[in-house]
């Protein structure tokens, strides 16, 4: 039997680290969703280990793409063929799973984005500017404060009879509003529902800027698991929202799709280092370069003591010697 050709997509985000394997037909074979917990390298290693356990060492991986805010780091560690920003990967993933999609709502750990698709290409996009209110990490924090597991947070909102009004423009104001409403005796369900509505209101103001959002609307990213937010979106927009099957790993899925396309086009062998990353001891060292008064914060990544990659300098003094990972990302 001919061995399947697989493509790996990795999305290292602020809250979660996701890995996705697709086959040559762009079908999802494996997916891993783990919490980054502030340690991107550890999370990535754990993710790779899980993939290896499921597939065995000799899996035929033909290409790797990385995305998310930790895409440079992940790219350096695994040997990525392509490093792509998360807007492009999310847009590609949504179009694969929901053909004809016109509006993509995405809320992740620290970013929220809206992507408008016209004629099959990204027509416009926006990312949150002012504050991380309404993103996954804020919801996490509020769930922890109220002592409710984040998985159940949304179902509380659905039980609400009369949601209270919470200020959603700023995370600090939202929190103090919630505390105040709690102290005046409002039910926790009503407060959570009010919070969901506030965050959706803020999202639509800040990102959609009052534009009409055309059907089909897809909602993805970790926060799409929150049924309270989904309900608030449907109420505010007055339309049905599609949650794609792999909503929580869409970035990684898109990265895998891009990697596959690139490798098919180029016909070259992958830059993937294999699963040896699982056993390597990675160290990230940051140092302040004193070469000039820019005092750049340089990051050096080493694997078992061997320098692997370097970035953060403006002049190129440090990056020049190390493996140049910028070639795949463009910057």
């Amino acid at each position: 039997m001919k061995e399947r050709e697989l493509y790996l997509g990795i999305d290292v985000g602020s809250v979660s680290t996701n890995l996705v394997l697709i086959d040559e037909n762009e079908k999802l074979v494996e997916k891993v969703y783990i919490r980054t917990s502030g340690q991107p390298i550890e999370a990535l290693k754990r993710g790779l280990k899980m993939i290896r356990e499921r597939l065995g060492d000799d899996a035929n991986i033909r290409g790797v793409g990385t995305t998310g805010s930790g895409r440079q780091l992940a790219g350096a560690i695994v040997g990525a063929d392509i490093i792509k920003n998360e807007i492009t990967t999310h847009a590609i993933a949504a179009q694969k799973l929901v053909p004809g999609v016109k509006t993509i709502l995405e809320i992740g750990g620290q970013d929220s984005k809206i992507i408008i698709i016209r004629n099959g290409v990204v027509f416009d996009f926006a990312m949150n500017t002012v504050c991380a209110a309404g993103t996954g990490s804020f919801l996490d924090r509020q769930a922890a404060r109220l002592n409710i597991p984040i998985e159940e947070f949304g179902t509380y909102a659905l039980k609400s009879r009369s949601p209270v009004r919470i200020a959603g423009r700023c995370a600090v104001f939202a929190e103090s509003d919630m505390i105040h409403k709690q102290q005046t005796g409002h039910a926790v369900e009503d407060i959570i529902c009010g919070l969901c509505e506030a965050l959706v209101r803020n999202y639509l103001n800040n990102l959609a800027k009052g534009e009409t959002l055309e059907d089909p609307v897809v909602f993805q990213g970790g926060v799409a698991a929150n049924v309270g937010i989904v309900a608030a979106f449907e109420k505010a927009l007055g339309k049905k929202i599609i949650i794609p099957e792999h909503y929580d790993v869409m970035g990684a899925f898109g990265a895998a799709v891009i990697a596959r396309e690139k490798m098919m086009r180029s016909g070259k062998p992958t830059a993937f280092y294999g699963f040896r990353a699982v056993n390597c001891d990675y160290r990230a060292k940051s140092l302040e370069c004193n070469g000039c008064s820019n005092m750049c914060e340089v990051i050096q990544i080493s694997a078992d003591g061997e320098p692997l990659a370097c970035w953060g300098d403006r002049c190129g003094k440090w990056t020049a010697g190390a493996i140049h990972i910028e070639r795949q990302s463009g910057f």
Binding site: S69, I82, K84, N85, E86, I87, T88, I92, N119, G120, V121, V122, F123, D124, F125, M127, I258, E261, K262, R265, S329, G330, F331
Partner: peptide, 25 residues
Amino acid sequence: NTRLEAFLDMVRWRYRHEADVSSHG
């Protein structure tokens, strides 16, 4: 960088689409 990169991707993607060579990345 994410915003700048994504913006250039969008511009190129749109251009390619108009030129009828569908691809990205």
